[in-house]
């Protein structure tokens, strides 16, 4: 379970650039919830995910993941609870390290790093199987530097890294936005497959309304640092992009017109 209670986050407080990015945000996710997150630019979607991940401390409110109050834990100390895939394919992997080394780093998430080997033979064969399951041919390039991979391959690898040690919560922040449509589709399907297989509680930010409707069992819309729409179950299955746009216009008093939200 994830519980966000009354989260507030202000960037550049007490300056001309002051920006309240999360404004008394509360949200509760149940185990196994696969939630898609939509909202206009600057709505606070990434900020919410970063707050959960602990990229910086929040001003007030509390964050509880699977019964653990992580509000005051630093980013690396709550990493064991989380799997993360970022918008920029460069962010999730170490380009100058090998594919298998990246996986080995991820496999040790939440463990103390000691003088034990950085990677063992058993691990290699496990990674080979997992990579083979991605169907990208990466299993034959395990000692290649990740920097040589395409964006889609890197995102698939990051997804694998995020879920290698089963996280309590998976955070996907527009993780297909930088990919071409076909690759994006593949990575999305792969994400769904991994989420379903492991029953992972997931927050997936997307700008594509159709994807937001198609994937997951629940959809939330954000605006001005709050959740303004929360739809799940059968109701979600009946959603159309038009209904979402209307809901947005109604709740925010603006229209999606000039937004980056993709209707395609």
């Amino acid at each position: 379970m994830l519980e966000l209670a009354h989260i507030r986050k202000t960037f550049n407080p007490k300056t001309v650039n002051e920006k309240v990015a999360l404004d008394d945000l509360s949200l509760r996710l149940n185990d196994g919830d696969f939630v898609t997150v939509i909202g206009g630019n600057g709505a606070g979607k990434s900020t919410m995910l970063n707050a959960i991940a602990g990229v910086w401390p929040v001003d007030s409110g509390s964050i509880v993941i699977d019964g653990v109050d992580v509000t005051h834990l630093s980013e690396h100390r709550r990493a064991d609870l989380l799997g993360r895939v970022f918008q920029d394919p460069m962010t999730g992997t170490a380009a100058t390290m090998q594919i298998e080394e990246n996986l080995a780093l991820a496999a040790r998430r939440g463990q103390r790093r000691t003088l034990r080997p950085g990677i063992t033979r058993q691990e290699r064969s496990l990674y080979r199987d997992k990579l083979a399951a991605l169907g990208l041919g990466l299993e034959d390039r395990m000692t290649a530097k990740v920097g040589l991979l395409s964006g889609g391959q890197r995102q698939a690898l990051t997804l694998l890294m995020a879920t290698l040690k089963k996280p309590k919560l998976l955070l996907l922040d527009e993780h297909t936005a930088a990919l071409d449509p076909r690759t994006a589709q593949k990575v999305l399907e792969l994400s769904e497959q991994i989420v379903m297989q492991n029953g992972l509680m997931t927050l997936m930010v997307t700008h594509n309304m159709r994807d937001a409707i198609r994937y997951g069992n629940r959809l939330i819309m954000m605006n001005a640092g709050r959740v303004i729409l929360d739809i799940s179950g059968e109701e979600k299955q009946r959603l159309t992009t038009q209904m979402l746009m209307d809901a947005f216009a109604q709740a925010s008093g603006e229209s999606f017109a000039n937004d980056r939200i993709l209707l395609a």
Binding site: S74, E75, M97, G110, T114, L115, G118, I119
Partner: peptide
């Protein structure tokens, strides 16, 4: 030897990508 160990790998990862290292639980 050292940079092939868990700790050494964590150091290399920190130099390669800090954001990723923290996401993987490394105290950078």
């Amino acid at each position: 030897w050292f940079f092939g160990r868990e700790l050494g790998c964590a150091l290399r990862a920190t130099g390669a990508n800090e954001a990723m290292s923290r996401a993987q639980g490394i105290n950078t």
